[in-house]
Amino acid sequence: MLKTLKNLQNLTVITGHFGSGKTNFAVNLAKAARQDGRDVTLIDMDIVNPYFRAADNRAELEALGVRCILPDFANTSVDIPSLPPEIFSAFEAYETETDRLTIFDVGGDNGAVALGMYNRFFAQYPYDLLYVINRYRPLTEEPADCAALLGEIEYYSRLKTTGIVNCSNLGAETTAEDVSSTIGWAKDVAERCSLPLLCTAALRELAGELETVPDLFPIENATKFPF
């Protein structure tokens, strides 16, 4: 497990601009933490996207021993963003189980409003809130816009961000150069937000060409296309 991600708080929330790569990062973080021996729960709290979501990876994650909590109607015929009461279990007996990692995969932008109802718990316990950024997503290409969106997400979630994750990618077409050329940009965003740049996530097959990238977190593509 990457050093900068090893000691994430038991409650770790993943937010960002929608389409930045949050779900891909969350699924890969869940797998890596599980392999690291942590007792991992992944909560799909995306109330924004109708499909292509963490729930698509359920079977694979559960086979690895990751517990998945999904919205009641994920991947059904209806668009009802209701969240199951099971989510409250993430906050139960918090202090007794220190090897737990509960990952909240939150929907993009104002999808962070879904975190509001759990605010009383986040006010009690330490947490990490990671802000996922992608240089290739329109509307957040400029570091200033990217930093401004962070303010919006903090407003909706009523939580404070603790770290930045650079997930800059162009989907299946991403080259190593596409990733390495975003490091300066990601550092700029982190500086503007006065937050640490925790890691740069990139597809595992590109890792060999990205040895000079600091804190590289190799990931697998978790998005399931129909073709």
């Binding site: 992608n134 240089r135 290739y136 997503r137």
Partner: peptide
């Protein structure tokens, strides 16, 4: 750096 951007199909329609 690529001049391409990563978008949802819906967003691509709107931007186009």
């Amino acid at each position: 750096m690529s001049k391409k951007v990563l978008m949802k199909g819906n967003e691509a329609i709107a931007e186009a």
